[in-house]
Design a protein around this nucleic acid. Structure first.
Lengths: 217, 217
DNA sequence: GCTGATCAACCGACCAGTCGGTATCCTACC
DNA sequence: GGTAGGATACCGACTGGTCGGTTGATCAGC
């Protein structure tokens, strides 16, 4: 399994660390990510991936069960990272408005920082085997639910409007986030942080309560 | 024998329109749309498409230059329809707020009414040949630009906030729209019209100017 | 000298596109 | 009103090539 993936056998193994900055498994993952983002999952052959990583198919099938498994691993990494960061903000300090703003801006920033992952996610997810596909969707759903709970919390407190279901707000917002891969360019005039600020701002404004508007229940 | 697939030709060709509800070309397009949405472009073989349409490959290559061309035709139909509807609202009567709201709600409704097209669009666009890809993107850009001009018009009039660039507002909104295909289900509790109303409302609110807040120019 | 890591050659399945052929219809001229 | 001749619509076997995955051999470190 992923035995050597995490820890570098510092001493003898690869004596010159610079010669092989990434172990084979990791190199396969990052090259596959790049190629899948560029040409799609079906448009990339296993041969292209292993050539890019400087190994042969035998090495790839030593570390991964299948091409499908490779894609699944890419998804797993992204999902774990995003969930971890969301929890950090959602369960952190501050008002619900501040926490939602921070989480929203953060997911935009990490999405543009890992734009290849964003491109792959929705373009290739349906290529996974049905079972794998389901597990990825389930994890994705858990993420959305935590985000939705944050919105619902603000609605209960009365700091967000309640006349739009929290689920719809979340789908609305994440549609925008997930589509960054189709138009954002890192070499454009807009940094990830700036874009995150804009997006978080648009989200918060769209669910801000009416300031005047007499009435309530 | 696929001869019996379409009953008509025996007597008087297909003067009786009901005998063959869809001509071959149209049947190929609609079956291809369904299958591309279900399995992706690369995941669908030409053989599967023609079998579903009840014809053979010869028929498909009689009407289309290539598998690529088939996808291009699907895109062309969608793009023409959407642009036509956008212009109807954007150049129609009403205040800029009313026109933007109507256009936004409409594009959501037509997207869920043709959900297969939505699914295909961003999942398979990059599979097109480079030249075809460019022309589709160019037409898509023209659509976005018209929408952006509508937002910019409201900003100039002062009925929308100007502290978020109109381009970003449009990318934000269309991200949400384009992702409907990944989560919306026609048999869910939410009709296309309801969803359109919610989305258009979220958009309009996100760019509504500060009501109180002394000072704006 | 065993074990995990990696290689190179290979295989069966599949796929987009081609091509020679057939059936039906349209037009025009007799 | 019969028919020749061209055009249109469609068939289905075939081809050249690619792809995911397998296998037996080899290499390097303990």
């Amino acid at each position: 399994m992923a035995r050597n993936a995490s820890r570098a056998p510092s001493a003898v193994r690869s004596r010159d660390a610079a010669a092989e900055p990434e172990p084979v498994r990791r190199r396969l993952l990052s090259e596959a990510t790049r190629l899948f983002a560029e040409r799609g999952f079906e448009g990339t052959s296993v041969q292209e991936i292993v050539t890019a990583a400087g190994v042969t198919k035998g090495a790839m099938y030593h570390y991964f069960d299948s091409k499908d498994d490779l894609l699944h691993e890419i998804y797993g990494r992204v999902l774990r990272m995003q969930m971890e960061r969301l929890l950090m903000f959602a369960d952190g300090p501050g008002t619900v408005t501040e926490r939602l703003h921070a989480a929203a801006a953060d997911v935009v920033m990490t999405s543009v920082a890992n734009l290849d992952d964003s491109k792959i996610f929705f373009r290739s997810m349906h290529q996974l085997a049905p079972e794998t596909y389901k597990s990825v969707r389930a994890e994705r759903r858990r993420y959305h639910e935590r985000f939705r709970d944050l919105v619902a919390e603000g609605q209960r407190e009365g700091v967000f409007r309640s006349d739009v279901p929290a689920d719809i707000v979340v789908d609305f917002f994440f549609g925008s986030v997930h589509h960054l891969g189709t138009w954002y360019h890192a070499d454009g005039p807009l940094s990830g942080a700036e874009l995150g600020a804009y997006f978080a701002d648009l989200l918060l404004r769209s669910i801000a309560p009416e300031p005047a508007e007499a009435g309530g229940s």
